[in-house]
Write a protein that binds this DNA or RNA. Structure first.
Length: 224
DNA sequence: GCCAACGTTGGC
DNA sequence: GCCAACGTTGGC
């Protein structure tokens, strides 16, 4: 009933009083650096801060997996079955992933990635139809992603709404992307730095325009 | 502020 | 089901 997607994040873990632990990059830069002009060192993993991402990849689990009594299954077919083929991307409990969602703008596109399943890979494309707002599931004790350390006054977690755009002409398996990535690492090709492999476990990640376009072209090529 | 223990992600 | 990678916690 709930549109309980399977968005991945890391453990919220109870009462962790200080706002912003890790990764709240944005927030952190603004508040933590009253020190000196230590110059807001950008998180090195976060590429150039000035370069704004416009393309994304979002992971979801297409196969049934029960967590706290709820099925986390939410594949691209499930998104297509939603009213208006739209769903909120709740349940992200990782600061980096959250911050990327907060940076998303209406109309931007994301790959819909199938994780934790028989054949992981990119299944389709979605677009952002509502920019970040409070993820209500953090306040629901029944929800697998309930976060007791978050308060209504000062919510920790956000989500966006995504709408189905289309499936890719062919499913692009992780294994294929990995081969390309490995090649590109030595040759300096387009997928040399793709977050999928350089930032393991991040459930919401940015892609450069080059990465996004390159992957899109793969759908017209032969499977390998 | 360091870092070992712990928990989760997610490919294989 | 295993386990590597890695974020988070908490003792010191």
């Amino acid at each position: 009933m709930r549109q309980t997607k399977r968005k991945r994040g890391t453990s919220p873990v109870l009462e962790e009083p200080k706002e912003v632990t890790e990764g709240a990059e944005q927030d952190r830069k603004s508040i933590t650096k009253h020190k000196k002009h230590k110059a807001v060192k950008a998180n090195p993993r976060e590429k150039k801060p000035q370069e704004e991402y416009k393309c994304w990849l979002m992971k979801s689990e297409p196969e049934t997996r029960i967590e706290k009594g709820l099925d986390m299954k939410f594949g691209i077919e499930d998104l297509m079955a939603q009213p208006s083929q739209t769903a909120c991307w709740d349940g992200v409990r990782n600061y980096q992933a959250r911050n990327f969602m907060r940076a998303m703008k209406i109309g931007q596109q994301a790959f819909f990635y199938h994780s934790n399943c028989k054949e992981p890979g990119i299944a389709g494309i979605v677009q952002i139809v509502k920019e970040s707002y409070v993820d209500h599931t953090q306040f629901d004790p029944k929800n697998p992603h309930y976060d007791a350390s978050s308060s209504q006054d000062n919510p920790k977690w956000s989500m966006v709404d995504v709408q189905f755009v289309r499936k890719l002409k062919r499913y692009i398996p992780l294994a294929e992307l990995k081969k390309l990535h490995l090649n590109d690492k030595s040759s300096g090709g387009p997928l040399r730095n793709i977050a999928l492999f350089t930032r393991a476990r991040l459930s919401v990640q940015p892609l450069t325009q080059e990465e996004f376009d390159f992957i899109l072209k793969l759908e017209d090529q032969k499977d390998i």
